[in-house]
Amino acid sequence: MNKKLVYLFSILFLVVIVLAACGGETDDAASEEGNDDGTSEETEETVTLTLAENHPEDYPTTIGNEEFARLVEEKTDGRYEVEVYAGGQLGEESEVLEQVQLGTIELARVNSIPLTQFSDEIGVLSMPYLFDDEEAKWDKLNGEVGQELLGTLDGSGLVGLTFYDSGERSFYNSERPVETPEDMEGLQIRVQSSDLAIAIVESLGASATPMEYGEVYSAMQTGVIDGAENNFPSYYTSNHYEVAEYFTVNGYQGTPEVLLGSEDLWDDLSDEDREAFTEAAMESVDVQREAWAELTEESREAVIENGNELVEVEDTDEWREAVQPVYDEFGDQYSEWIDRLTE
Rank of each mutant, 00 (worst) to 15 (best):
V178E: 11
V178N: 12
V178W: 15
T180P: 13
P181K: 12
P181L: 08
P181Q: 08
E182M: 15
E182K: 10
E182C: 11
D183R: 03
M184K: 09
M184T: 04
M184C: 11
E185W: 15
E185A: 13
E185G: 14
E185S: 15
E185Q: 14
G186H: 07
L187T: 07
Q188I: 03
Q188Y: 08
Q188G: 10
Q188A: 13
I189F: 08
R190V: 04
R190I: 03
V191I: 11
V191C: 12
V191T: 15
V191Q: 01
Q192K: 09
Q192N: 15
Q192V: 01
S193A: 10
S193V: 00
S193F: 06
S194E: 06
S194V: 00
S194G: 10
D195Y: 00
D195C: 00
D195M: 00
L196H: 06
L196Q: 04
L196E: 03
A197S: 13
A197Y: 01
A197V: 05
I198N: 02
A199K: 04
A199Q: 02
V201P: 01
E202Q: 09
E202W: 13
S203M: 07
S203D: 15
S203L: 07
S203K: 05
L204K: 04
L204H: 01
L204C: 02
G205L: 05
G205I: 01
G205D: 06
A206I: 09
A206W: 01
A206G: 11
A206N: 10
S207L: 12
S207F: 05
A208R: 00
T209H: 12
P210R: 00
P210Y: 01
P210I: 01
P210D: 00
M211D: 08
E212D: 14
E212S: 09
Y213K: 04
G214H: 09
E215A: 15
V216W: 08
V216R: 10
Y217F: 14
Y217T: 00
Y217G: 10
M220S: 08
M220L: 15
Q221A: 14
T222G: 13
G223F: 02
G223K: 06
V224E: 14
I225D: 09
D226N: 06
D226Y: 10
A228T: 05
A228G: 14
E229D: 12
E229W: 03
N230Y: 10
N230I: 07
N230V: 03
N230C: 09
N231Y: 11
N231H: 14
N231P: 02
N231S: 12
N231A: 12
N231D: 09
N231K: 03
F232L: 11
P233H: 11
P233R: 04
S234T: 06
S234Q: 02
Y235R: 02
Y235I: 06
Y236S: 03
T237V: 08
T237L: 07
T237H: 05
S238R: 14
S238F: 10
S238G: 07
N239D: 15
H240W: 10
Y241A: 10
Y241D: 08
Y241L: 07
E242C: 04
V243S: 07
V243T: 05
V243F: 07
E245C: 05
Y246T: 04
Y246A: 11
